[in-house]
């Protein structure tokens, strides 16, 4: 508490003087209702939602590829949701995201001990296997990719999205 007090006083004093430092990538807590928030805030835009976890082997391979995909395609909203069972570790999740070039994506972290309910809100048939990718089209149509996604498949989906636009 004492350390916190000192830190906050320091922060308040320095706030006026110092320019805003670059903040580390934010991890939003994914709780009950967050899924609807994700859907609402990206409605009408092609969106890639990726569920992953720090203990998932195939995710370690796939994450950098998705980082590159995001870099190459600014027209797609990329939403990353760390969906290991709790305790989901923010430090480990952030480190993996940044290493994969996904620090600037919209990043969420499962933060509700009742993961069955979180998953049920997203897809009642999903039992938690990761990685898992949902491609959400402009019209809200969802394509689910179980397991590691192949980048050419993502490119193909994106091309279809662009074709619809024309």
């Amino acid at each position: 508490m004492k350390r916190c007090l000192l830190a906050v006083i320091f922060l308040l004093v320095s706030l006026a003087a110092a320019p805003a430092a670059e903040t580390p990538s934010e991890l939003k807590p994914f709780v009950r209702g967050s899924w609807q928030e994700v859907l609402r805030s990206h409605a009408g835009r092609p969106t890639l939602v990726h569920f992953w976890g720090v203990t998932c082997g195939p995710c370690k391979v796939e994450l950098p590829l998705l980082g590159q995909f995001m870099k190459d395609h600014s027209e797609v909203d990329v939403v990353m949701i760390s969906a290991d069972l709790v305790p989901n570790l923010p430090g480990a999740a952030r480190a993996m995201l940044e290493k994969a070039g996904l620090g600037s994506a919209e990043n969420w972290l499962f933060s509700d001990g009742f993961v069955e309910r979180l998953r049920f809100e997203i897809d009642p048939a999903w039992q938690g296997e990761i990685p898992r990718t949902l491609l959400i089209a402009r019209d809200g149509a969802v394509t689910t990719i179980e397991g590691s996604a192949e980048i050419p498949d993502l490119e193909k989906w994106l091309a279809q999205q662009k074709a619809v636009m024309r």
Binding site: M1, C4, L5, V8, I9, L12, V13, P29, V31, L85, V86, P87, N88, S111, D112, G113, V115
Partner: peptide, 27 residues
């Protein structure tokens, strides 16, 4: 005033952390 503000901020942060932790745990 600064100290009061700092104290109340820390209180809020401590409470938030606690309730968040309880909620997020599977235990």
């Amino acid at each position: 005033l600064l100290a009061t503000l700092a104290f109340s901020l820390c209180q809020t942060m401590a409470n938030a952390q606690m309730s968040h932790h309880q909620h997020a745990s599977e235990a």
